[in-house]
Amino acid sequence: MRQIEGGTFSMGSVGWYPEETPVRRVRVDSFWIDETPVTNRQFAAFVAATGHVTAAQIAPDPKLYPGMLPGMDVAGSLVFSPTSQPVALDDFSQWWRFTFGADWRHPYGPNSSVDDLDLWDHPVVHVAWHDVSAYASWAGKDLPTEAEHEFAARGGLEGRDFAWGDELAPDGRMMANYWQGLFPFANTCDDGWERTSPVRSYPANGYGLYDMIGNVWEWTRDWWEDNPAPPRKKHPQACCTISNPRGGTIKSSLDRDQPGIRIGRKVIKGGSHLCAANYCQRYRPAARHPEMIDTSTSHIGFRCVVRA
Rank of each mutant, 00 (worst) to 15 (best):
residue 308 A to C: 11
residue 131 D to I: 01
residue 49 A to Q: 09
residue 64 L to Y: 02
residue 155 G to D: 02
residue 12 G to Q: 02
residue 54 T to F: 08
residue 216 V to C: 03
residue 69 L to H: 14
residue 254 L to T: 00
residue 194 E to W: 12
residue 222 D to N: 07
residue 75 A to V: 07
residue 134 A to N: 06
residue 158 E to I: 11
residue 299 H to P: 05
residue 88 A to Y: 10
residue 163 A to P: 04
residue 170 P to A: 08
residue 265 R to Y: 03
residue 54 T to G: 06
residue 186 A to W: 10
residue 122 H to C: 11
residue 51 G to K: 08
residue 155 G to C: 10
residue 118 D to G: 10
residue 56 A to N: 05
residue 4 I to H: 05
residue 293 I to M: 12
residue 192 G to F: 09
residue 132 V to F: 04
residue 198 P to H: 04
residue 108 Y to S: 14
residue 233 K to G: 11
residue 295 T to Y: 14
residue 7 G to S: 01
residue 124 V to L: 07
residue 76 G to P: 08
residue 214 G to Y: 06
residue 160 R to M: 13
residue 256 R to T: 13
residue 84 S to R: 14
residue 55 A to R: 13
residue 292 M to G: 15
residue 15 G to R: 01
residue 5 E to P: 09
residue 136 A to W: 08
residue 17 Y to A: 12
residue 219 W to Q: 05
residue 49 A to H: 06
residue 282 R to G: 09
residue 263 I to G: 10
residue 207 Y to F: 15
residue 295 T to G: 06
residue 306 V to D: 10
residue 159 G to E: 14
residue 83 T to I: 05
residue 282 R to V: 09
residue 116 D to E: 13
residue 43 F to V: 03
residue 98 F to T: 01
residue 39 T to Y: 03
residue 205 N to V: 03
residue 49 A to T: 07
residue 279 Y to Q: 10
residue 141 K to L: 10
residue 174 M to I: 14
residue 3 Q to D: 11
residue 307 R to K: 04
residue 231 P to M: 12
residue 133 S to H: 14
residue 292 M to D: 13
residue 282 R to N: 12
residue 83 T to G: 06
residue 193 W to V: 03
residue 72 M to R: 15
residue 257 D to Y: 13
residue 261 I to E: 12
residue 145 T to W: 01
residue 279 Y to P: 00
residue 187 N to I: 04
residue 19 E to P: 05
residue 271 G to D: 09
residue 169 A to H: 14
residue 110 P to W: 08
residue 265 R to G: 04
residue 267 V to Y: 05
residue 180 Q to T: 14
residue 239 C to M: 15
residue 254 L to A: 00
residue 244 N to V: 03
residue 37 P to Q: 11
residue 14 V to N: 12
residue 83 T to K: 04
residue 153 A to S: 07
residue 58 I to S: 13
residue 134 A to L: 07
residue 49 A to M: 10
residue 169 A to E: 15
residue 105 R to A: 13
residue 114 V to L: 10
residue 42 Q to R: 11
residue 305 V to E: 05
residue 194 E to K: 14
residue 281 Q to M: 14
residue 133 S to T: 15
residue 304 C to N: 03
residue 271 G to W: 01
residue 166 D to R: 07
residue 225 E to I: 09
residue 84 S to F: 11
residue 154 R to T: 00
residue 64 L to H: 09
residue 172 G to A: 01
residue 142 D to H: 12
residue 149 H to F: 15
residue 47 V to R: 10
residue 272 S to T: 04
residue 37 P to F: 05
residue 165 G to F: 09
residue 261 I to R: 13
residue 45 A to M: 13
residue 155 G to P: 00
residue 208 G to D: 07
residue 289 H to E: 15
residue 265 R to A: 10
residue 267 V to K: 05
residue 119 L to W: 11
residue 39 T to Q: 02
residue 30 S to G: 12
residue 135 Y to T: 04
residue 176 A to M: 15
residue 92 F to R: 14
residue 217 W to L: 01
residue 64 L to T: 02
residue 35 E to M: 12
residue 271 G to A: 08
residue 80 F to T: 09
residue 199 V to Y: 05
residue 2 R to Y: 04
residue 86 P to W: 07
residue 162 F to G: 03
residue 138 W to V: 06
residue 278 N to L: 06
residue 50 T to W: 07
residue 251 K to H: 15
residue 258 Q to P: 06
residue 4 I to T: 05
residue 143 L to H: 03
residue 217 W to N: 02
